[in-house]
């Protein structure tokens, strides 16, 4: 399958934290709604794989990655996420396992338990 390639560093060199209100437009929430969600929609429509490269930034807070990719579970079928999402990282390859084996599964459990995607402030 063909790929749509995006790099986090093209969004920000300094990824922030989880929510928009906690950062300077570089949060995981910002990244999800501005980049990941539209790109993944496009990948599904065109039967392509969305490939996200994590390298080159100044490092991640786990909350940034959790919010960036976990939200996919609330907007797209879980099986489609597994087959149409690819994460790449040469610098920190263990993030790939964290996202697929922990983040996505935790968010799926949250969704199955009818919890809101974002806790009320």
């Amino acid at each position: 399958m063909e790929k749509i390639l995006i790099r986090v560093i093209d969004f920000t060199e300094y990824p922030g934290v989880r929510y928009k209100h906690q950062g300077n437009n570089d949060s995981g929430e910002d990244f999800y709604y501005e980049v990941i969600k539209p790109a993944f929609e496009k990948a599904l429509n065109q039967e392509k794989i969305l490939s996200v490269d994590l390298d080159g930034t100044a490092g991640y807070a786990s909350s940034f990655l959790d919010e960036s990719f976990g939200n996919l579970v609330y907007d797209f079928p879980f099986e489609e996420i597994k087959t149409h999402l690819e994460i790449k990282s040469f610098e920190e390859p263990d993030w790939i396992d964290v996202i697929f084996k922990e983040t996505l599964k935790d968010w799926k459990r949250k969704k199955d338990e009818n919890q809101p995607r974002k806790p009320e402030r």
Binding site: G16, V17, G23, A61
Partner: peptide
């Protein structure tokens, strides 16, 4: 190391005092 990383950077205080 990754467990410690997640503990700290996922914490309420880290995310709310980020700046």
């Amino acid at each position: 190391n990754r467990k410690i990383h997640k503990l700290i950077t996922n914490s309420y205080e880290f995310n709310n005092l980020y700046d």
